[in-house]
Design a protein around this nucleic acid. Structure first.
Lengths: 198, 198
DNA sequence: CTACATACGCTACGATATGTAGCGGATCGA
DNA sequence: TCGATCCGCTACATATCGTAGCGTATGTAG
C-alpha cells in the first residue's frame, strides 16, 4: 500500500491519490467489480496508468484501500448497561453499513481476496481482525456481567453473526434493519441465561 | 449451461466435456482462481478453446459446473428422533464437505458471482436455494416436534449457520469438526426449549 | 538559491486473455 | 447416404496487465 516512510525528492501528489481513490470508489459503486480495472480508474481519474501502478501494485489493493476509506468504522461498539441491546446495536449497525456503498465495496474486496493473497491478508489484519476483536470485547462484557452464558463461545457467535451478514451481502440479498433484528434475536436466545417465556 | 434440448447432427463430445470439466477442477484445486482461465483449461484439457466457448459462455459458469459436480450434495439431511443431533450432523457434514476440494471450488464460484450475474443466479437457484430448502425442512421438523422454540426463526438460523461456514471458507481459515461442533452448539442453545443447567 | 531525488505524464512494448469468425474434416442421427 | 452439427485449427480485433524509458515538474536538503 502507500508507504509511510519519509522520502527524498518530490512527494506523491495528494490530488492524484484522491482522484484515483475517488474514481475507484465510483467505478465499484456504479459499475461494479466487472468494470473495475486499473485502466478504467486511470481514464476516470485523469491520472496516468503508470502513476497508479507506482502507488498500488494490484487492483485488489486499490479496491481494498477504497473500501477501507468508505468503511470509516463507525460501528456501534458502545457498551451500555444492557449487553443484549449492545449486541442488537452492533449487528444493526453492521447491517446498516454494509447495506450501503461500503457493502458493495466489501463484496468486491472479498472477491479479489480469493485470487490475491495480499488482499486477503490486508483485509484480515487491517480490517476484519481489529473489528472482530472489538466485537469480541463487547460480547465478552455481557458474559462477564453475568447476562450471557458463562460458557458462551464468543468466537463462534461472532462467526455466526458476521458470517450471516456477509452471506446475504455476497449473494445480493437485501440487508435491512428488520432482518438484522431477527438475526440478533435468534443469536441472542443462545446467549441469555434466563429462558424466554413460552 | 449445457443445453438439454435434442439436436440434429453430431452430438457434443462427452470426452471433451469430461476433459474440460476435469481440467477446470484440477486448475482450481491445484493453482487456484488466479490461474483459472479458458485458455488454461484449453491447454490442460487438450480441447480447443473455441470448443469450450461453444458449451460455456463464461469461465464463471464453467467453474460453477465444475463445482456442482464436485459438490455431489451428500449432506446429512437424515431426520432422526433427535433434531439436535440432526442439526449437529447437518453443520458437521457441511463443514466436512467445504473443508475439502469442494470448498476451494466454492470460493472461486462465489468470487466469480460477484462480477458475473449469471453465476450468482445459477449458484442461488441451482445450488444454494434447494440446499437451504432441505435444511429448513430439517430444522422446522425440530420445531414441529416441540424440541425447538415455537417462534424460532428458521431462516435466520440458517443464515447464521451457513454464513459462518462461508465466512471461514472465504477467509481461508480452517474448518474442522471441532469448530463445526462448537458452532452448532452455540446456535443450538438458541433453539432448545429447555434451559441447559448452570 | 541551487542541487538532488523523486513523482508525474506520456509513449511504447510484450505478454496474456477475451470473444468471434471461418474453414476443412469428423461424426452422429435420420 | 445425406444432412446437420461438432471438433480442431488459424486468424483477428480488443482489452488489460505490468514494465521501461524519457522529458518535465516539484518538492526537500544544504
Amino acid at each position: 500500500m502507500t508507504t509511510v516512510a519519509p522520502r527524498m525528492g518530490r512527494p506523491r501528489s495528494a490530488r492524484s491519490r484522491r482522484a484515483v481513490l475517488d474514481a475507484a470508489y465510483a467505478i465499484l459503486i456504479e459499475d461494479g467489480l466487472q468494470a473495475f480495472s486499473i485502466d478504467a480508474v486511470a481514464v476516470r481519474s485523469g491520472v496516468a496508468r503508470t502513476t497508479i501502478y507506482r502507488s498500488w501494485p494490484s487492483k485488489g489493493l486499490l479496491a481494498f484501500e477504497s473500501f477501507r476509506e468508505a468503511f470509516e468504522t463507525q460501528l456501534a461498539f458502545e457498551r451500555t448497561a444492557s449487553p443484549e441491546k449492545d449486541l442488537h446495536a452492533l449487528v444493526a449497525s453492521l447491517a446498516r453499513l454494509l447495506s450501503g456503498p461500503a457493502g458493495r465495496l466489501a463484496t468486491s474486496v472479498v472477491a479479489e481476496a480469493q485470487s490475491d493473497p495480499a488482499v486477503r491478508t490486508h483485509f484480515l489484519e487491517d480490517f476484519s481482525g481489529p473489528l472482530r476483536q472489538r466485537s469480541a470485547v463487547l460480547v465478552q462484557a455481557g458474559v462477564d456481567a453475568g447476562r450471557f452464558r458463562k460458557d458462551l463461545d464468543v468466537s463462534r457467535l461472532l462467526d455466526a453473526a458476521i458470517g450471516a451478514v456477509y452471506l446475504r451481502l455476497l449473494f445480493g440479498q437485501a440487508i435491512d434493519q428488520i432482518w438484522a433484528e431477527q438475526l440478533s434475536c435468534t443469536l441472542l436466545r443462545g446467549c441469555l441465561l434466563e429462558q424466554p417465556g413460552p
